[in-house]
Each structure stands twice: as C-alpha cells, then as structure tokens.
C-alpha cells in the first residue's frame, strides 16, 4: 500500500478537527480530562493509540518528529510509530531532542530541557489517578468537579504505612495549576519536576480510555506529598557508565549471567550527544567501540 491511500497523518480531517477541539479544551482547563471519540488505529491499544491520535491531529508538514519509548528512540514501539508517521505524513524525523518540534513519548521526558514551541505528546494507558482507589467513574468525576482529592493522600499514606516512605515511583500524582489532580502517565517520578513550568506544551492522549488532557507551557505542576514526607526524586548513586552524566535517569543493564551490570542513561539521545561531545563514563570505551555508544536492546 502506498502513502497516498491515507489522508495526511492517517486520520481524516473531520476526526482531526474533533481531536483538536478536545486538545484546545484540555489546554484551556489544565489537567482536566476531556472525553473524545477515540478512533481505531492500525495498531493495538497498548501501543499508545491515544498519543498517536494526538500527534496525528497536531502534525504539520514542517514538523520534525521524535518518538521515544523508555527514553529510547529505537525500541520496536518507538520505531513503528516513527515509521507510521513517516509513511502517512511524510514528516521529517529525528532522534535529537533539540531538533524535534513534536516528541511522542511513553515513560520518559527527555533530559534536554524542552523549549518554547516544542510539544510533548504522552501515550497514556490509564488517565484517572483515582481509579484504583475509587472505581466508580460517576464518583471520580464528582471528586474532580469538587476538587475533593483527600483520597489520593490516603494512597500515599498507605505507601508510607507499608514501606516507611512514599513508594510510588511511577505515575506519581500531581496537582496541575492548583486545581486538577493528574496522572502524569507511567513516567518515573524523576521526571515530575520537568513538567513544572515547562516551556513546552504537554499533551496526554489515552486511546482506550478516550481521554485527552494537557499542561500548557509554564503551568504549575506540583507532586503530592506530606509535610513530614516531602516529594523526592529517585536518586542514583553513580553517574552514567557510558557518558558520565549525573542527575539523569539511569536504567540498569545486565551485562552477563555472572551478575555484571551497569547503569546507563535511559535517554539514549542525551547519552549519545554527550559521548559525541567527548564525555566518558567508567565503562565507555569497551562498549562504545563498534556500537557508537548505543546500548543494545
């Protein structure tokens, strides 16, 4: 099949207009989950059809698209989505965060700070942060309408009671613009501070759950916590073994079956850019040779 068989970016113009209206509403009410008529996409739901529909609706011919999954540009999921838009929209793609105008992501926010004019599109599996505490949708809607969010703190209370600290490390709940409780999707809490007052527009699409929400540029995003158990980001004991970066999110990579392992940047673009600039970690040379510093996955 040729690209000509599709409308630009796959979705028909009427659908894109409908999704854009939902996006505009979401931007107007930061953190509020706007229902939309999610369409079937030629990929399974687990692949981020919500994010794909949002991206399809905002892409223009001049956009430069980056797609990441777990911080990496070359996992199957990231590669397929990138190819999908290359084929259906013919847009330029990149792995460089700074060059992208639209970045679709699952799990991570790039380490390179985002700039005004960039759009970060999140693929969201479960948009409702109160879902596991209150399964009744009529009730969670009411809680959002009345900003009754005490229950979310009950969850954090349970964490501390059980583990001695807030053990939630992914999908860590945030308050957006002091009004709506929001699930940042399965990003690590490490990335929560990056959402706060980001210069970029952040859009969230949940395909199966048919919800879109947004954090407009420069919006307050505050992670929930207790006075005596303040929010803390994950800390890593050592720098990236490849590029030596500190203060970035690291993945553990198992090297062999004898317990050998190393910690490397989860953001592969960030890591490669640093290595290209001459930064070296403790294990850089042997791995970097022949692989250009990119870890295998």
């Amino acid at each position: 099949m040729t690209a000509a068989a599709y409308n630009f970016a796959y979705l028909d113009e009427q659908t894109k207009r409908m999704i854009r209206r939902a996006i505009l509403k979401a931007i107007a009410i930061p953190g509020y989950q706007v229902p939309f008529a999610s369409r079937e996409m030629p990929m399974p739901y687990g692949w981020g059809t919500g994010g794909v529909q949002v991206t399809a609706s905002i892409l223009g011919r001049d956009d430069v698209l980056k797609v990441i999954d777990q911080g990496s540009d070359d996992t199957t999921n990231a590669v397929s989505i990138r190819k999908f838009f290359q084929k259906t929209a013919g847009v330029a793609t990149t792995t460089a965060t700074a060059e992208a105008t639209v970045i679709q992501t699952r799990h991570r926010i790039p380490e390179t700070p985002l700039q005004a004019g960039q759009v970060l599109v999140y693929q969201v599996p479960i948009p409702e942060p109160l879902r596991f505490l209150e399964p009744r949708e009529t009730e969670t809607r009411k809680m959002h309408a009345l900003a009754e969010y005490g229950l979310m703190h009950v969850k954090l209370y349970e964490d501390i009671a059980r583990h001695g600290h807030i053990a939630t490390t992914y999908a860590y709940p945030v308050m957006v613009a002091g009004r709506y409780l929001m699930d940042p999707s399965p990003t690590p809490k490490f990335d929560n501070p990056k959402m706060h007052r980001s210069a970029a527009l952040q859009l969230f699409g949940a395909g199966r759950e048919k919800r879109i929400y947004a954090v407009p540029p420069h919006t307050e995003v505050v992670s929930l916590d207790f006075e005596d158990h303040p929010f803390e980001v994950n800390r890593f004991e050592q720098p990236c073994a490849l590029c030596g970066a500190e203060g970035v999110y690291l993945d553990e990579v198992v090297l062999d079956d004898r317990g050998g392992r190393m910690f490397v940047c989860s953001d592969t673009d960030h890591c490669e850019t640093r290595q290209a600039a001459g930064h070296r970690g403790t294990m850089a040379s042997p791995i970097a040779a022949g692989e250009g510093g990119r870890r295998a996955d």
Partner: peptide, 21 residues
C-alpha cells in the same frame, strides 16, 4: 482494601491534613 489507619485518616486528609505523623 485500605488499612485501618488509612480508613480513620481519610476524613482528616479530606479536610486538608497533610502531616503523616
């Protein structure tokens, strides 16, 4: 599904108590 402490504490958190101790 919530601990006894969480059950008792829920109303406190609902009215804005934010000190775990």
């Amino acid at each position: 599904g919530i601990s006894a402490g969480g059950n008792v504490g829920e109303r406190l958190m609902a009215v804005g108590e934010r000190h775990y101790g």
